[in-house]
Write a protein that binds this DNA or RNA. Structure first.
Lengths: 195, 195
DNA sequence: GACAATATTGGCCAGTCGGTCAGATATTAA
DNA sequence: TTAATATCTGACCGACTGGCCAATATTGTC
């Protein structure tokens, strides 16, 4: 358990799943499709992922973790709360720009989960992690006097909502959204809400 | 063609489809499920909707049209651009509160469309209608001197993004979002961006 | 009441998919 | 070397689905 081969095989399968789902949509993606694209046999997927749901969860976790990591990393080099928030917003859009396939797959899977009770709270927990990032920074900024007094939960929720909503617009029509300007616009919005 | 029975049958099928998809998710919803819930035979669905895709498009259009109608209606009674924008935002959240099933189904179907090329521009056109509503009001408000000079497209895009993002948070965790406060928060955000 | 048009039923079929499994092959341990 | 374990394959199966259609029922028209 936890062998080297296991690790790279799982990664290979998850990566191919992302690519395939991004290209054809979750509904049109069978385990056989993923196996074919990964140039492995279908059975090996079941060997490493008990069910298709398990694989899908791994895909979602993988994307969320990657994004989260990048956000935290880029926020760390900033000193002010305002700077950290801006860096967090920027990190979201940078990740989008560099991983369109992953985002397309993510949005596709996202909604297919929204009705499954067992995954419901799993996902809301994930969400809380994203919003929590902004909420803590807002609270810290208020304490330091960097920000004016606001409802930190609501404000964080709105910032995250704007990011997600913009992501969806960009998924549906890549040309209609200039990621750099969108990122700047939301950073500006956050500033206006907090100062 | 266009008979009375056709109209109510189609409506009945679409309504039942919304209910069923909201309950079980699109992936787990077969034509037979919808027929059973509507207490009609499976064949009659194919009779009125040539393919499953046709039905799904009707569902999406139905929800979009309902929402759009309510937005325009509520904005019409306001006189200022600021008032119209606030009314438009409120209308979104009112509709959500009163039609949770429709929104759940909508989000579920939304992504299942995002990868189909033929439906891609259809959906971006729909999106443009939503954002266009805000964009025109912002432009009008700037002309009247009600608002300061901003990028109307970007600002409209951000407002719509915040609404959609909040909708998703609410879909995933109904308890985590207070729709009334969220609505107020986004109206306030719009004011801050425009004044 | 006869007759066409419309509306409705439910069974059928071909195709697809997720998951299983017996067995082949490769790797490791003893 | 050999035994044991891990990895991998591809065929197979039961379940399900969308679309089709022949048959039946209902409605409207003269």
């Amino acid at each position: 358990m936890g062998s080297f081969i296991e690790k790279i095989r799982k990664e290979q399968i998850v990566n191919t799943a992302i690519m395939t789902i991004a290209r054809n949509g979750f509904i049109n993606t069978s385990l056989e499709d993923i196996a074919r694209n990964a140039e492995i046999s279908k059975g090996i997927i079941s060997y490493y992922f008990k069910t298709k749901d398990t694989l899908i969860c791994s895909v979602i976790n993988r994307i969320m973790d990657d994004l989260q990591e990048e956000i935290i990393e880029k926020a760390a080099v900033e000193s002010t709360c305002s700077g950290k928030i801006a860096a967090g917003i920027t990190a979201n859009f940078d990740y989008m720009a560099e991983n369109r396939q992953a985002i397309v797959a993510f949005v596709d899977l996202w909604s297919s989960i929204s009705t499954k009770d067992d995954k419901h709270d799993y996902n809301s927990r994930v969400y809380e992690k994203c919003i929590g990032f902004f909420k803590r920074l807002i609270a810290a900024g208020m304490e330091k006097g960097e920000f004016k007094q606001v409802d930190s939960g609501l404000t964080a929720s709105i910032i995250q909502a704007a990011i997600d909503g913009m992501m969806i617009q960009w998924i549906f029509n890549e040309q209609s959204v200039d990621l750099r300007r969108a990122s700047g616009g939301i950073i500006h919005m956050a500033e206006r809400l907090l100062r």
